[in-house]
Amino acid sequence: MSLSTHVLDATTGRPASGVAVTLSRSGTEVAAGVTDDDGRIGTLTADLSAGTYRLRFDTAGYFAARDITGFYPEVVIAFEVTEAHAHHHVPLLLSPYAYSTYRGS
């Protein structure tokens, strides 16, 4: 099973580069990365078993670097891996006062 993510800044219509992301399970960090110039982390990890995980996006750091005040200092997305052999993609659409996510492919 592999995991990737992609962050888009809805206020600019551009990829959100430089967003720090951590992946945890049961409160323990299992992987970390920073989005690239295209707002992506192509492979955050390639070795996950079935279970519940949390992706934490440091939105405060992202917005502060752009001198923008936001409402959400972080976005945490909890998701469950049930297909241990499948690729999981978790995109985040971000703005200072709202966000959305979905299971990508």
Rank of each mutant, 00 (worst) to 15 (best):
D9V: 05
A10H: 04
S24I: 01
R56I: 00
H87G: 06
L23P: 12
R25Y: 03
G13Q: 12
T43D: 13
R56K: 09
R14P: 02
A10M: 15
R56Q: 08
H87D: 15
T22F: 03
G42T: 12
H87P: 08
T11H: 12
E80C: 01
S95Y: 00
S4A: 15
T45F: 04
F63P: 05
D36M: 02
R54E: 15
G42N: 13
E80M: 02
A60K: 12
D58G: 05
L55P: 01
D38I: 00
D67W: 03
D37G: 09
L94M: 06
Y53N: 03
R66F: 06
R103S: 10
T11A: 15
D9T: 07
H6P: 01
V19S: 11
D9A: 10
L93K: 07
E29A: 06
D58R: 00
G13H: 14
L48V: 11
T59D: 07
T101G: 04
T69K: 11
S26E: 15
S2E: 14
I77H: 09
H6N: 15
I77G: 06
A46K: 09
S26G: 07
L44V: 09
A32R: 13
R25H: 12
T5H: 09
G51N: 10
A78K: 01
S105W: 10
T11R: 15
L3I: 14
F57H: 08
T59A: 05
G104W: 06
G61T: 02
A60G: 03
A32G: 05
G18T: 12
G61C: 03
R56V: 08
F79G: 04
V75R: 08
Y72F: 15
Y53D: 05
A60Q: 12
T28M: 07
D38N: 11
Y53R: 01
V7G: 14
P91T: 04
V81Q: 04
V7D: 13
G39T: 03
G61P: 02
T82F: 00
V81M: 03
I77Q: 14
V30T: 11
I68N: 07
S4C: 14
R54G: 00
A60M: 05
A32E: 11
A10N: 11
V34C: 00
S4R: 13
F57V: 00
S95N: 10
L92M: 09
H88M: 02
I77W: 04
T35P: 05
L48R: 08
R40Q: 14
R103A: 13
V75D: 08
A64S: 14
A31Y: 07
G13L: 11
D58Y: 01
I68Q: 12
T45G: 07
T12E: 13
T101C: 07
F57W: 02
V90E: 13
A46P: 06
A86W: 06
G104M: 05
A31I: 04
T82A: 08
V30F: 05
Y102N: 09
